[in-house]
Design a protein around this nucleic acid. Structure first.
Length: 344
DNA sequence: AATTCGCACAACCGCTGCACT
DNA sequence: GAGTGCAGCGGTTGTGCGAAT
């Protein structure tokens, strides 16, 4: 039985032999793949085009990086996954030489287990432990802090500018979040990139492209950590502190993800660039929200977020990197401190 | 030594989105 | 706008191999 795309042909399945690999490599290096459906015939292979494509992309491509994932790659995977979910191709873009299949396998075989071992839901990156249990484990963290951590346990906060944070008491539909710098995807031909710090993009392009956020990149006087703030423009000015149980811990993520997906998919690169630039200018000049922007099909993006706000004043004692993967509080000994990576 | 088990990775399958007609 | 073909994606399954029993 062949694929639906080549059901009329007799195609071989299963593992590729070295001879088949050689044929495919020879053909593609000399002719390029062109239309994949015609590759097997032209290359003299009893495979379907889909299989040839997969073999080339996942295994034979010369620019593939082989070997185990580095700690940095692992962190990148986790960080991007928290944002985009199981979009392996998106994640793989941040890892030159890695394929989506490779990333997916690594996630399922290694990272997933680590997260679970750390008490985190690998799908949502939220703590699996109930809040009251966490409270019992640590009296140094108040309920509000826990409520936030529960929402965004892997929100990676590298902030030493606590005053700025305190000053920035505001409501957010989406979590205040600071990620460590992520390398931009290697292919920059059709994409735009957020402001960079020391030549490294400090903001994942997904969020940078999100016109619903305003990015403020600052550098701490003390530790030079890049501090990014996601400020929901439409919600600025409201003040609705939240309690531990007022939010659906996973709700905002789904909405955010859907929103980003739609936004990225719907915006032409040049329009994205223009839109982001314009929005940044708007933010700088006006310093206030503009709810009137409708990005697609007349749908107001602001409506894509449910109310999910944060009271930053209650939060952020300064979460700093802890080990290679997890982030922990620098000011108190908490259960979060225990969330360090073990070996895979 | 033989068998079982678990793991990592390769490959397949089905679906979706896009471009073209 | 509908139909078609294709590439790409993500979930799932298959395979090989080493460790454990």
């Amino acid at each position: 039985m062949g694929h639906h795309c080549c059901s009329k042909q007799k195609v071989k399945r299963g593992l590729w032999s070295p001879e088949e690999d050689e044929k495919l490599i020879r053909y593609i290096t000399t002719n390029g793949h062109g239309c994949w459906s015609s590759v097997p015939k032209l290359a003299g292979l009893q495979r379907c085009g889909k299989s040839c494509r997969l073999r080339w992309i996942n295994y034979l491509r010369p620019d593939l990086k082989r070997g185990s994932f580095s700690a940095q790659e692992e962190r990148t995977i986790i960080d991007v996954h928290r944002i985009v979910g199981n979009r392996w191709a998106q994640i793989a873009k941040y890892l030159p030489g890695r394929t989506d299949n490779e990333v997916k396998n690594f996630w399922n075989s290694c990272i997933k287990k680590k997260l679970i071992a750390q008490g985190l839901d690998p799908n949502t990156h939220h703590l699996l432990l109930p809040i009251d249990q966490i409270n019992n484990n640590n009296n140094n963290i108040n309920a509000c802090t826990l409520s936030h951590i529960h929402q965004q346990p892997t929100a990676l906060v590298c902030s030493s500018n606590t005053q700025m944070i305190k000053d920035a008491k505001m409501d957010m539909k989406s979590p205040f979040m600071t990620l460590p710098p992520l390398p931009p995807p290697p292919d920059t031909s059709n994409s735009i990139h957020p402001p960079s710090l020391h030549g490294i993009s400090a903001i994942p392009p997904f969020e940078f492209l999100n016109p619903n956020y305003v990015w403020m990149t600052t550098v701490s006087d003390q530790n030079q950590h890049a501090v990014m703030e996601l400020v929901n423009r439409s919600s600025m000015g409201r003040s609705t502190p939240i309690g531990p149980y007022q939010i659906n811990p996973s709700g905002f993520e789904v909405l955010e993800e859907n929103y980003m997906r739609d936004t990225i998919a719907s915006l032409e690169p040049r329009k994205q660039l223009e839109g982001v630039q314009q929005q940044q200018e708007d933010k700088v000049c006006e310093g206030k929200a503009d709810n009137s922007k409708e990005l697609r099909n007349g749908e107001n993006i602001d409506n894509s977020f449910d109310s999910c706000s944060f009271d930053l004043e209650l939060e952020y004692s300064g979460l700093l990197p802890c080990g290679t993967g997890m982030y922990c509080s620098s000011t108190s000994s908490s259960c979060i401190d225990q969330l360090t990576w073990g070996d895979c």
